[in-house]
Amino acid sequence: MNANIHRRTELELTAGRTARRILYFAVLIFLLLACILISVNVGSVGVSLRDILAALGSDEGGIAGVIRDIRIPRVCMAVMVGANLAVSGVLLQCVMNNPMADPGVTGISSGASVVVLIITMYLPMHTSMIPVWGFAGGVLACILIYSLAWKHGLSAVRVILAGVAVNSVLGGVTSMISLLNSEELSGVLNWLNGELGKKSWTQVRIMAVYTCIGLFLSFLLPRCCDLLSLGDKNTKSLGYDPNVLRIVISAAAVLLAGISTAYVGVIGFIGLVVPHISRMLMGSEHKYLIPFAALMGAVILLAADTIARTIIAPYEIPVGVITTVCGGPFFLYLLRKDNKGYGD
């Protein structure tokens, strides 16, 4: 009798958890679709879903042209970059076992942006290579910061401190390059602050290829991430080298953040805020956390971008400015909050 009651509550518990997860996923998918529709609509006469599909299929100019060649690429870019940055944040937080790690704080974004800036300024070349340079820059910054912070393993505090130092050096380099090339400055300045507009379909397609690779890799990693969350000693006694896992997971994170930064510049705090909220809703199992964060990142960046281009229309604020202004206080909030739920 007692055992029966017990079994039932147990089943209900598991069922409840699963149902909640499905519900959250459904809500997010709905929000994503709504955001896409709103974002395409905002700033002009109303367009229905059918108009959008018609615009995609046609090659007319006018409103259909605007939708097809300006708004839809922009929406695609926001969705991909949002997903990439959020997943990158989840992975980095797992590597460092600390909820304050993200591609911005760890210097990966600024590393990627400096290298891409140098390349576009001094060695302009085919656009398909730009994400590769972004990745290379991210890897360089990541190696630099990890080796500065390494002392019997990675400590989150040391990584963040090293990240601050590397970030400010890279910021200096960026300013220097911008000043030396002041005639081309305005476009660059917008890009540096994170800008999703003015993207061609070619760029969207290239981005899609790299995004698929990056997200595919990270969807292979949930078990590695879960294992690491049991701590280094347990990871070792279960037969895996925690530092090897860290390098593999970091590589995926740097790829995702690097390619995103290469095309749209530094967009801060998506990688910090989204993983945190996702973890509160989904729990710590990466099997659910990674896809959920990807979806939520897409929704939030798309929403932020829609706000960025409408709030003071006809002018535009770079979306990076919006995310930084909203994300900064959140970082302080995490700093104040104790991280009980996370590790110990």
Partner: peptide, 29 residues
């Protein structure tokens, strides 16, 4: 490391795990 982990299991003095992990999932590790 894998061979050793099939021959020797170890319970550490201090252990860390995400607070929301269920016991069953933990044991499955």
């Amino acid at each position: 490391a894998r061979e050793i982990s099939r021959k020797i299991a170890m319970v550490h003095q201090q252990n860390r795990a995400p607070a929301d992990l269920t016991v069953e999932r933990l044991v499955q590790f």
